[in-house]
Amino acid sequence: MDEEPQRAERPPGWSADPQPAPDARALLAEVAKGDEAAFDQLYEVIARPVFGLVRRLLRNAAQSEEVTQEVLVEVWRTATHYRPDKGSAMTWVLTLAHRRAVDRVRSEQSAADREAKVGSRSGARAFDEVSESVLGRLEQLQVRRCMSTLTELQRESVLLTYYRGYTYREAAELVGSPMATVKTRLRDGLIRLRDCLGVGS
């Protein structure tokens, strides 16, 4: 996809869609002009990643479907706001999806309730669960390979925040490390993934 020119190192077949997919950026530009047919095509490109990510975060199938629908309609509604110089179209869509799903997770539990629940869980067990359900099902070898280059704490920090929607403070409690440590490990982990996946300059 020409919207992600930096990732030349990525192995062939990386794209979420094995068929040569229409370019998400070009489709989004058409959608911004109110083109419903372009949205139909864009749906084919973004629906799987959006649904998959939302499902990881929410777990509940019916809720995931509902939030996915909200996200896709938001893509239509706000396509005019997408700025190609700020990142790829897919990232823009998945940023919307992640934020919406995380908002939903957090609004359903009051903060206190959530903290209590997190505090009462065994950190180690919670992470085992994450590893199995998320890493075990990752379809993309490249992400899995890059994940394996992270230290354990880096990986836990990334998985718990991105795929589970925990705040870094909650993640710190879960893994039993100081918040400042998790904060920096999360950043270090993402930077290592960035370099391994060939994002940016």
Partner: peptide, 29 residues
């Protein structure tokens, strides 16, 4: 850059949504 990276983690989680979702989304838009 880190958002772009996280986006790839999102793509890696792709999963087929229920078939009837598309009709509902297209209707709503």
């Amino acid at each position: 850059e880190l958002r772009e990276t996280a986006g790839l983690l999102g793509v890696a989680a792709a999963e087929e949504p229920p078939a009837e979702l598309k009709g509902r989304v297209l209707h709503e838009i």
